[in-house]
Amino acid sequence: MTAAGANPTVSGVDSTGPAIETHGLTKNFKARVAVSGVDLTVPRACAFGFLGPNGAGKTTLIRTILGLTSATSGTAQLLGHPMPRERTAALLRVGAIVEEPRFYPHLTGRENLQVVAAAREPESSVRIGPALARVGLAARADERVGAYSMGMRQRLGVARCLIADPLLLILDEPMNGLDPAGIQEFREMVAALVGEGRTVFLSSHLLDEVEKTCEMVAIIDQGRILTQGSVADIAGAGRRVVRLRCGAPAAAAIALKDHPSVQSVHQEEGVLEVTLSTTAGAETDEAVADVVRRLVAGGVQVYGVEGQRVSLEQRFLELTSRFETSA
């Protein structure tokens, strides 16, 4: 996949309002609630990650937003168009992969895109070549899709989205089957698409890749949105962990047992892992300084202090585990 290619800028961009917006969106399957009262806002021109455990409601929410299944209650808008009432107008500028992309295996990659383009505006056919080049399939475009690997079919799915010249791409697990080089190329392509003013809504279980690819994220579990916002803010809201190298870890653990900012202390191979109950910034800095002061005052030599970075994956596990416990 290449950053250059199909469309250097988005034509006819209407940048007013969110790309996706839902209020109280609910989808029930008889007695089972698959999506429950979801309020979701996806800004324009950003890469937005959508995360959740298996069965959390990710694909059901995507299908409901796209009008592929009807909502039980609540509202949804795509590019300012109420769904499903203005579905046709909205989907003219939306490209979507829902679950694994399907193609005619006896046709080539190019021929599959030609079938799709024939049902769209005439300009779609002109975009086929650039779209194939952009996803790195130009050299394999005239081979039958039946011989494609899973990663190649994923690339072809993205190319199929691009022939619509989309303002919004909704991609469900698009990195499945991609090798490390392919994932890096995909990440670069998403950045280029966002740079053109497009919005990429990316549902994935690859949390590390979402953290590297997306600026914003929402986490869903059991059909409910647990949190949404910038990746930095959500990861930064997680637990604060400091690793201390000290001369007497056992004595240090006892000394910190009743510290007001210390949530827990774990000792491993001469290193003390201290989990703080503070929020980010100055409060955490002051707590770390006070922890060190208390240890030194108690006669414990401190050789090193290292803050442990909280990843999106750690924050995801904290949120979903806590939700599971309280449910």
Rank of each mutant, 00 (worst) to 15 (best):
P130W: 01
S277D: 13
G229E: 02
G177F: 06
R309F: 04
A164G: 00
S326Q: 13
T59G: 00
T279C: 02
F316K: 15
Q301L: 07
G236Y: 07
G49D: 07
V231S: 02
C161V: 06
F29M: 00
G52C: 08
N7Q: 10
A287N: 08
A118P: 12
L319S: 01
H106V: 09
V42M: 02
L107V: 00
L319C: 01
M1F: 10
T325F: 09
A181S: 11
T16P: 01
E286Q: 15
S311R: 14
G109C: 08
E188S: 13
E273M: 09
D233Q: 06
R127L: 14
A76N: 05
K257E: 15
N176D: 00
F323Y: 15
A191C: 07
R315V: 15
T69N: 02
N112R: 03
V271L: 15
T16N: 06
M83K: 05
R120V: 03
C214E: 08
L113M: 01
V292S: 04
E173P: 00
P82Q: 12
E185L: 03
S11H: 12
V210F: 05
G182Y: 10
V300S: 06
A237T: 11
E273Q: 12
M216Y: 11
V296W: 08
M83L: 14
I234K: 04
G67T: 05
I219L: 09
G24P: 05
R315L: 13
T16A: 05
V262H: 03
I163G: 01
G157H: 04
L132M: 05
L276S: 03
G238V: 14
R240D: 13
M216K: 14
E173Y: 12
H106Q: 08
G146H: 08
I254T: 14
E324G: 11
G281R: 11
P105C: 10
R140C: 01
P43S: 07
E173D: 07
R140Y: 07
R87G: 03
I65E: 05
R120L: 15
S311G: 13
L202Q: 10
Q114Y: 00
T41C: 08
V292H: 04
M152T: 01
H259I: 04
G307M: 14
S261W: 05
D179A: 12
V288K: 03
A6K: 00
A47K: 12
L132C: 03
L276R: 02
A3M: 08
A253H: 03
V94Q: 04
E318L: 12
V126F: 09
V145N: 04
E196H: 02
G17V: 09
R309Y: 08
K257F: 12
P8R: 05
M1G: 13
A76D: 09
Y104Q: 10
H81M: 04
I234V: 14
L178T: 09
G247I: 09
L79D: 07
A133E: 15
R309L: 13
A289G: 09
V126Y: 05
V310C: 11
A34F: 13
G236Q: 09
Q154N: 11
L132T: 13
V115L: 02
A255N: 05
L167Y: 03
V300D: 00
A232Q: 10
E86L: 14
D142M: 03
G182K: 01
L276F: 15
S311A: 12
S124T: 13
R224L: 01
R155E: 12
G304E: 15
T279V: 11
P18C: 06
T279F: 04
V94M: 01
G80Y: 10
